[in-house]
Design a protein around this nucleic acid. Sequence first.
DNA 1: TTGTAAGCGTTATCAC
DNA 2: GTGATAACGCTTACAA
Lengths: 338, 338
Amino acid sequence: MTIREVARLAGVSPATVSRVLSGSNHPVREDTRRRVLEAAQRLAYYPNRLARSLLRRETAVVGLLVPDVSNPYYAAVLRGIEDVAHQHGLAVILCNTDRDPAKQRQYLRTLLEHRVDGVVAAGGTLTVEDLRMVDGRVPVVAVGRHPARVPSVRVDNVEAARQACRHLLELGHVRVGCLAGPASSLTARDRVRGYLAALREAGVQPDERWLVWSEFTAEGGYRAARELLERCPVSAVVASNDQMALGALRALWEEGLQVPEDVSVVGFDDTPAAAVSVPALTTVAVPTYEMGRRTLELLLAVRAGRRAANVVLPTELRVRESTAPPRKGHAAVADRAG
Amino acid sequence: MTIREVARLAGVSPATVSRVLSGSNHPVREDTRRRVLEAAQRLAYYPNRLARSLLRRETAVVGLLVPDVSNPYYAAVLRGIEDVAHQHGLAVILCNTDRDPAKQRQYLRTLLEHRVDGVVAAGGTLTVEDLRMVDGRVPVVAVGRHPARVPSVRVDNVEAARQACRHLLELGHVRVGCLAGPASSLTARDRVRGYLAALREAGVQPDERWLVWSEFTAEGGYRAARELLERCPVSAVVASNDQMALGALRALWEEGLQVPEDVSVVGFDDTPAAAVSVPALTTVAVPTYEMGRRTLELLLAVRAGRRAANVVLPTELRVRESTAPPRKGHAAVADRAG
DNA sequence: TTGTAAGCGTTATCAC
DNA sequence: GTGATAACGCTTACAA
C-alpha cells in the first residue's frame, strides 16, 4: 500500500496525493483533493513516515532517557512530556537507563540511529561524554539537575529542602534527621545540602549521625529510618521523597513512636499517596507533571532555534498532619530510640 | 554523515561498509573489516535506521498503548515490556490514551505510519474497530483482559478477587464491602465478579449497598470508602487496588475505625507501598512486571510467526496486618458507620 | 493546478 | 571478497 496505488485509484499523480495528504500548502483543486482523500480512505492508506523522514530529515520522534519509569516521580514527568509531545504530533521513545552509563550510551546510540528530533534526559545521568557523542546532531534538554551543560527544567531542591527543614526548626525541633536518596543522584544531594543549610542557618550544628543515605523507595526509607533510630534519638526527620517518608512512618510505628507527637516527618514531591496516609504527610510539593510539560516545550524551542532559557519551577511546602512541635521534654524519644 | 563517507575514508564501497556494520554474515576480509570499523569510529558514524527500515520493511520499534503511565500498575507493566524490548534491540514508543477512543485511534494511526513492528495494548481499551484498522498490518498483543480477540497475557482477576473475598469470609466476616475501580475497566469488573462469586459461594446474599464504584486511585478509594460507610455498616472491605485500599485506610481512620479490629481491608496488586503502610496491607499480588515481560515475549513470538498461546499468570494472596476476624458483636461498627 | 523525475541513505542482488 | 546498481516510498524542484 503506497502512495502510487492511491494515486492510481484517484487518477492523479503521486505528487498530488502527497500534496493533499501531507498537509502541504501547495494548491490543489477542491474536487481533486476530494478524490484523493476518498481513495486514501478506501484503501486505508497510511503514509510511510520512514520515507518521509528520510527525505525531510526529521522524524517527529523524540527520545526520553529516564532512570526508571516505575518510579512515580519519573512516571509523572514522563506523562507531562508525552502529553505535550502528542499535542505537537511527536512520538516518544522511552528508555530506562537504571542509571547505568553503558546502558545509557547504548540507548543514546539507538536514538541517534533512529534520527530522533530531540532527546530529553531525566535523572541527571547524562555525562559530558554522552553529550559529546550527541554533539550538534540532535537537541538535548534535561529535567532536573544535570552535570552536563544543557538547557534544563528543574526546581530548586536546595531551597525546597531548606524550606522543609526550616519548618521543622521553627516548630522547635533541634535534632532533625535526614533520610537521603542515593548519593549518586544530584537531586538527592541537593536536598541534603538544603537540609544542612537550614540547620546551620538556625545555629544548629549538624550531627553526622543524623544523616542516612539510602534508596528513593519506601523500603529504602524504612531501612534508613531504622538505621537512624539505632544511631541516635531525633525528634524530626526530613525524608528525600514521599515514598521514603512513608517507609519511615512504618519504621517509627514499629518502634512504638507516634507521628507527629514523638517524631515529626516531612516528605518530598507530594505524590497522591501523601495526602491519604495516616497521618497525612507534610511534604514539599514538586510540580513533576508540569516539569515534564515545560521540558518538552523547552525542547521544542531549542529545535526551532528559539532562545532557550533554563526554567526553575517553584516548590511549595504543604503542611499536613505529620509535623508538630516536639514534646516538652522528649526523654521518651531518647529512651526508646537509644 | 552517510555510509558513503565512511566508505570513502576506509577506501571501500558502501556495500562493504554495510556488510561490516549491519552485522550481515556476508564474508569480509579481516583487515578490510578493521579499516571500516576504524573509519566509522573516526567519523562517529551512526547508520540511518530510516533508510534501513524503509528497505527491510521492519523498524525495530514497537508501540505501547496504555491508559496512563502515571498509574503505578501500568508503569510496572511498561517497565517489563521495555526491558525485554531493549534486550531484543527494540525501541518502545509510549502512548497514553486516557481511555479515550479518539485519542487511541489517533495514536494507532501514528504507530501505523511509523510502521512499528508490533503493538501492545494495555488496559483493555482496544476495540474491535481499532483492530480492524490494524488488521494484518502489524501484530497486536494485549496485557490484561481485552474485548478484542488478540493474544494476551493476563491474570485471572475473577479468581484473584474471589480468593481475596474468601479470605475475609473465612475469617468470619459476613458484611463485606467492595470498593470497585471504574466500570469502564474490564479488570475492575472482573474483580467485582470474583467478589460477588465468593459471597454467593459462601451463601451470603450480596447487599447492593456494599458495592461502590470509583476510580483506581487513592483519592477514589477514599471517596468510595466514605460513601460505603455512609450507606451501611460493613466489617470488611475488598478494594480493587492498593491505592484504593490506602485511601480506604485513611477514610476509616477518619471515622475512628480501627483496621483490622473494626474493619478488615484487603488490597490488590501488592505495590511497594502495601508492605510499609500501617497496618501493612493484606493484598493479592499481581505480577505486573512479569506480565509486561511475558507480553513482549508473546509479541516477539507472534512476530516470528510462532504459535502464540495466551498466558495466564498466577496471583497470590499475601496476608499481612490489615485483615483479622471481626469483633465478637460488632455493634460498634454499626453504630459509628450508621 | 498538475505531472515528471531526482534523491533521501541504506541493503539486496548480481556481477566480477 | 568486493563493487555497481537498483530499489524501499515519499517529497519537492522544475516543467508544463
